[in-house]
Computed example of a mutant assay.
Amino acid sequence: MKKIVLIALGVLLCVAGVLWTLQGLGYVGGSSMTGSTFWAIVGPVVAAAGVSLLYVTFRGPHNR
């Protein structure tokens, strides 16, 4: 169950990050975030956090 929640959170972060990036760059309109440099910077950071979470979740237990 924990793995499913982490996967869902990772995907959500990736989607939100990409959307925020596109809004910040002005490709997606209709909000106050459109054309804002702040969201063009925060979006990739959030998307990278989502990708990192997915990587750690799918990597499984780390055996030493």
Rank of each mutant, 00 (worst) to 15 (best):
Q23P: 02
F38C: 09
V15M: 15
G24L: 00
G30K: 02
M33A: 15
G50W: 03
F38D: 12
V51A: 08
F38E: 14
F38H: 10
R59D: 05
V11N: 02
G10Q: 02
G26R: 01
G26D: 09
V11P: 03
T57P: 00
T21R: 09
L9I: 12
W39Y: 13
L53I: 14
G29S: 10
G30W: 11
G43S: 08
A49E: 00
V18D: 01
G10T: 04
G26C: 04
W20K: 09
V51T: 07
V28P: 00
W39N: 06
V11T: 13
S36N: 10
V15I: 15
A48H: 00
G26H: 08
A48M: 11
V42I: 13
L19V: 15
L22Q: 12
G26W: 02
Y27N: 15
A47K: 00
S32H: 10
G17F: 08
V56G: 06
L13W: 06
G30P: 06
G43F: 04
G29A: 14
A49M: 03
V11Q: 05
M33G: 07
P44W: 05
V46M: 05
Y55L: 13
G50L: 08
V51I: 14
P44Q: 11
V28F: 11
S32A: 13
G43R: 01
T57S: 08
G30F: 06
T57L: 04
V18A: 15
V42G: 03
I41Q: 07
M33R: 13
A8D: 04
G35F: 01
G10C: 01
V15H: 14
L25V: 12
P61L: 06
L25P: 10
L19D: 14
G26S: 02
G35E: 00
T57Y: 00
F58H: 06
Y55Q: 04
G17D: 02
T21C: 13
T34C: 06
G35W: 01
Y55R: 07
A47R: 03
Y27A: 15
I41F: 03
M33F: 14
L22A: 10
P61K: 02
L13V: 01
T57V: 05
L13E: 03
V56S: 03
C14N: 07
V45E: 02
A16V: 14
L12W: 11
V28Y: 04
G60Y: 05
A8Q: 03
G10R: 00
L9G: 09
C14D: 09
L54D: 09
L12D: 05
C14F: 12
T21N: 12
V56M: 07
V45A: 13
V18P: 06
Q23L: 08
A40D: 01
G30M: 03
L13S: 00
